[in-house]
């Protein structure tokens, strides 16, 4: 789960403010490689300006933090379920409220990156064709931008992805679903968790809506 925001202060003051609130629960702090890039260069690239520059970690979760973004991420392959995940996010929002450095929310989003070792494209209701014939290939990246008001949806399907699971690489496929709201559609401290919950529901609908029924059955999902 991720929030992009406008801060009341400059970046150099923010890590200390946040760490003071979360240190007991997230003792480990790491600078990310992007932090080495000069600020002016980062600002010139819009897709870098909203990236995290550092992480705070514990055994279960990681908090990504940057000048305009804070996100809660589960550890790879150990999603604890929505209940636990959302409780942790609610706690984090409480900490952010206490720091008082978020002036305005810019974007609120939920993203699920699902890795499958088995073939994915043939198990989706999504079809790709060229001149009426199925588009085949060992590697493929499909990316879609959609709207499901008030949410914006980015859907990516990757055939031929490499996942790192406990430092062991695996080849497979990815279904990446990201949904988010713009600044006028949420108030982080007023209805943020409700909006995250709605985003989660939408992401789940999209995910299960794309999978063929027999593939869903084969995955044996448990619903909470």
């Amino acid at each position: 789960m991720e929030v992009r925001f406008l801060a009341t202060e400059q970046w150099r003051n923010l890590p200390g403010l946040l760490f003071a609130k979360i240190r007991d629960r997230y003792p480990q702090q790491t600078d990310l490689p992007l932090a080495q890039v000069p600020e002016q260069l980062r600002q010139q690239q819009p897709n870098l300006s909203t990236q995290p520059l550092m992480q705070f970690s514990n055994a279960q979760f990681t908090i990504n933090f940057g000048p305009r973004v804070v996100g809660l991420v589960t550890k790879t392959n150990s999603y604890p379920g929505w209940d636990l995940f959302s409780k942790e996010m609610a706690w984090l929002i409480g900490c952010l409220k206490e720091t008082a450095f978020i002036q305005e929310g810019e974007r609120l989003g939920v993203r699920y990156i699902n890795f499958f070792e088995e073939d994915l494209l043939s198990n989706l209701v999504l079809e790709t064709q060229v001149a009426g014939k199925p588009l085949l290939g060992s590697e493929m990246l499909l990316s879609f931008g959609l709207r499901k008001e008030p949410f914006v949806v980015r859907l990516q399907v990757i055939k031929g992805a490499i996942g790192n699971f406990e430092k062991v690489p695996k080849l497979g496929n990815v279904l990446d679903v990201e949904v988010w709201l713009g600044s006028n559609d949420f108030d982080l401290f007023d209805n943020g968790m409700d909006r995250f919950s709605e985003g989660h529901t939408l992401a789940k609908q999209i995910f299960f809506g794309l999978l063929k029924d027999d593939f869903v059955t084969k995955l044996k999902p448990t619903y909470s």
């Binding site: 406008l6 002036q103 305005e104 929310g105 810019e106 974007r107 713009g182 600044s183 006028n184």
Partner: peptide
Amino acid sequence: GKALSPRALEA
């Protein structure tokens, strides 16, 4: 100076 407000930009 304050950074550009996302809400203002949306409007």
